[in-house]
Structure formats: C-alpha cells, structure tokens
Design a binder for these strands. Sequence first.
RNA 1: GGGUGAAUAGCUCAGUCGGAUAGAGCAACUGCCUUCUAAGCAGUCGGUCGGGGGUUCAAGUCCCUCUUCACCCGCCA
Length: 588
Amino acid sequence: MNSTLAYLTTQLDRAIVAALGEDYAGTDPLLVLSSNPKFGDYQANMAMGLAKKIGQQPRAIAQSIVDNLDVAAVCEPPQIAGPGFINFTVKPSHLATQLQAMQADSRLGVPVADKPQRVIVDFSSPNIAKEMHVGHLRSTILGDCIARVLEFRGHDVLRLNHVGDWGTQFGMLILYLREAYPQALTTADALDLGDIVVLYQQAKKRFDEDPEFKEAARQEVVKLQAKDPESIKAWKLLCEQSRREFQVIYDRLHVNLAERGESFYNPYLAAVVEDLKVTGLLVESDGAQCVFVPGFTNRDGDPLPLIVQKTDGGYNYATTDLAAIRYRIQTDKAERIIYITDAGQADHFAQVFQVAKSANWIPENVEVSHVPFGLVLGEGGKKIKTRDGESVKLKELLDEAVDRFRNDLEARLVTESREETPEFIDNSANVVGISAVKYSDLSQNRTSNYIFSFDKMLALQGNTAPYMMYAYVRPQGISRRGNIDYDSLGDNAPIIFTGELEINLAKHLLQLEPIITEIERDLLPNRLCQYLFELSQKFNQFYDDKKKYPILEAEEPLRTSRLILCHLTAKALKLGLDLLGISVLERM
RNA sequence: GGGUGAAUAGCUCAGUCGGAUAGAGCAACUGCCUUCUAAGCAGUCGGUCGGGGGUUCAAGUCCCUCUUCACCCGCCA
C-alpha cells in the first residue's frame, strides 16, 4: 500500500475509535483517491454508511471524526463536504519528501513483494505446423506484460509456452504428407512452413470429409503414441521447423518464454486417469472415461462430462491440462498458475479446475486462474481476415505496422527538412511499429473484444505508443540540450513547487506504486497504460508552459528541482513501458 | 434450448470496494511555435450509461426482467 494511504488509514482508525468508541475499531474508512481534483487527493466515504447504524447525521459523524483526527504531518486540514465526505489534500512539503525518496530509489518507490511467489504464466501457445496468426497476438503480448509485472515485483516467474505439439492433428498431417510429399517426413526443411500450413489445411479438409482417412489418421496417432521411430522422426522435424519460425516472431516482439508443449505431459496422462479412478470421480459414458462435476450441462440440459480418455483409449487436451496442473504444482512448486487464453475457453478451464479441486490436486496455498481475453476483430467489428479470407499472419501484420510508420516518418522528415540516417529511420520504424501493435492491444481492457486498426495505433496523438514514446523523448531532449547528466542530480536537492501543473505532475508520479501493485493483483495492463497516458499528458502540460515553468532557463534551485521532475517522469515512463514490453527511443 | 460475457458521446474506449456535476482519445470547429522536438498544449461541440422494475442515504457500477450482439456447449485444442 502507498505510504500516504497507509498513514491516513491508520490515523482514521484512531480517530474513529476516539470519536465513536472501541466498538468501531477496524471500521473500513472507505478511503479512495478523490473522484475529482477539486475535492482534494483522497476522500473517506464511511460517514454516510455509519449514519443509520449510529443514528446521527452523516455530517455530524464526519465532524466528530475530523475533530479527533491528526493528519497534519501529511495533509492540509481535512474538509467535510457534501453529504459527509471527508476530503484530504496532501501538503506540498510531503509530496516533495516522497519525490526525493522516489528519486533516491532505483525501483522508483515500488517495493519487492512481501511474499514472493513461484508463479507460472502460461501464454502464447501456438500450434505446431501452423503459422502464428493474429489470434496469438493477445495471449503473447498480455502474457509477456503480466510476466514482466510479476517479475518486477520479485516473483519467481516461469513463462511457459504450452504449444500444441501433439494430438489428432499430427496423425492427419503425417498421413497426408506421406501421400502428398513424403520427403517432408524424412528431410529437414523439405517444405516451407507456409506450404506445410497449406497441406495441413488440406489434410484437415480430408479428415472432416473422408471417414477412411479419418480412421487412418487415428492409426497414425496410435503409432506416434507408441513411439514408432518413423513417426517420431517426422514429428520432431515438423516441431523443429515450427519452433524456429515461432522464435523469429518472439525475437521481434522481445518475448522470452520456455517451450513446454503438450507432448511434455504424455508420460503423466495415464496416472491422471488412474488417480481419478481411485478417487471415485471417473465414470464411463458411451465408452469414454469421464468426470462429471456439478454446474456443467450440455445443450440438452444433461450433465456435461469432462472427457479424460476417449473411447479409442487416447487422451485429449483435458487430460493434458489436468496433468499439467499436477506437474506444475508438484514438480514446479507453483503457487500461482495463470492461463492466458481467449475467453472462449472459460468453460473448459472452469471445468478442468473444478475437476482438479474435486480430486484434491490443488492445495489451499495455490491459486489457479484463467485470465481470459476477447477476440481481435477487423475494422467494422468483423472477423479480421485477408482478402482471401485467410486469417492474418502475425509476421505480415507486424511488417505492415513497421512499414506504415516508416512511411509516416519519412514524410515527416521531408516536411520538417530533417536529415536522418537510414539506420535511424529503420530502427525508429521497427521500435515504434512493434510498440504500437503491442500498446494498442494492452491499452484496452483485455476482457472485451478488440478492434484492430493500424491508423489508430500509429496515431501520434491520443492513448498510443507513439504519443507515450514522444513524451519520453522530451525530457531526454532537455538533458541533451542542457548537457545534463540526470543521474548526477543527487538525491537531496530540494523539490520546489511554483504552480498547479508541477504539483499535478508530482502527484501523478507518486501513483506509480499503487498502479503496479494493482496490476499484480488484477492482471489488467490497461490500467498501467492509462496511468502512463495521464503521466505523459501531465508532463506535456508542464513542459509546454515554457513561460511559467522554464526548465533549463530557470534559476537555481528551481532549475534542479524541475530537472528532477523531468528525470522522474522519464524514469517512470521508461519503467512503465518496459513492463508493457515496449522499448523507448532517446530521439524520434 | 443452456451457459458465459458484453451494450456508456457520431467512432474507438476508460470508469477502482456503490460515493459528489459520467471521463479520455479520435472526428468537427477555434486559438497558441523569435525561446528545452508543435509527434505538443489550451478551448468549443457532443450523454435518457440498451429498455423496464428493484435494493440503497447514494446505482454506469448490485439484484430481477426484457431486447440485441458475441463466444462456448461429449470423445478438436
């Protein structure tokens, strides 16, 4: 908790006891950030709720609490307003003290978690023998951001890529390749991944239409599961080729994660079914081994099973997910497991978690959560597709963002008569293009569907990556222009406020810590984006009023004070963007 | 049919534990560069928070109901 908030909570608790008696000790003061700056910085809302209980007017209750309240070390005298709100305004002297502490702290006042946890973030998870497409974007970007926030807070994070590298799909692909292009099964890189994807689609069509092919594909899966050397060799070739292609994308996105695909859990699948049998949860239904848990029904209203072993003896993804939960808890010692997949899988995960709980596989101290996200849609809210109706490849989407920004930049350089090297243009386009794609996704509440728009994400104004990156470039420009080494400004220089815009900026800087701990809990990166956007706006307002707030031209000690505000803003923006997985540029 | 989620300004979206007069950005219009990058800033315009009921001192937020949309619903993942 933010130290100001903690202080006010403590003092309010004392005042409540002094005013209303020991019975009211521990009453939640309902202390929150003010809804409107004109009401100050914080407001306590408990007086209205206490009114009926105590039988007094809420304003009278608020008054008696304020009469017993001592917050003079931090705040101006509290004000009672409206029906009984208690409003607090933080003293500039306290802001200055806190900013100095922030300046002296390499973590900008964001402490390491009290109890670091072993956390697994399961994200990205593309399928082998398919190309990464727009559908993998959100999981990859959100997962990376969430992992970064947890890592920054000192948690021991294991980032896992649960790739689809097993199952029915491989039977049909291997079978089809044997007919259509047998070299692909024995020779590395005999086909481009793109061709394999096309062949996969043909195989899938055949699988759906031709019962004989379907049965033969099942036999191929059996061979693969039985570790038939030829099948295993083909499987490994396909996985290796896909893995290299995925890595190209991850490198471009600066995303790190460890591949641990579905096949990893194969040795543990039989035990899952066996243990479910022992616990008495396993039921045979239409030849399949199932678990029924309450609350899940099918379209006829009958109980919906979680099938853990198919009629043909094979296992499916539910079995793999159960085995993965067990492995992650028992072997990886995870205390928090986070699955970042689309909202369409919510029912599946709810069911899998429920089964795991029923089987007592999830101890009290372990939290398992599905972090769902909405679909990526094209403009107009329709499914995003190419002209041919195919899903858009991630590579092409990133290329287009980079190209569009490069064109914008080059046009701007011409109109501004600026000369920049090809390396500068190239690097800027790459960093801004990729950042724009990431930021536009992260800046929306992940739970809703997201309309993908190059024009909006690359816009130079508004809540976009370019705007934020530009806000960072400005304080960096000041340090260059003034030959200032921000790091040698020292930790003890006085912070002086001469106006409202400076104070607004200072107050916002100090909200970094509560925002980050909030995201650690709620896993909603858009809150961080909102914070950074507002920080950028507040800095720009301060920066823009050159007459009232000169920086390099100011007299000491004001000059150093303002340079510290610039430095803190730059550091907060850089840290915040880094937690989003976005790099900054020193010059744009 | 059942389940889940959504519906807020012309468009794209925020809205924290229920708190004061519902906020941004875009678009449209108006101002501001001799001076740290104007990729910026200031301002104007724009709302029955899908409809109806309820709970509450207080509802965009909680409950019920209706409408519309999206996604999911036995051996794919």
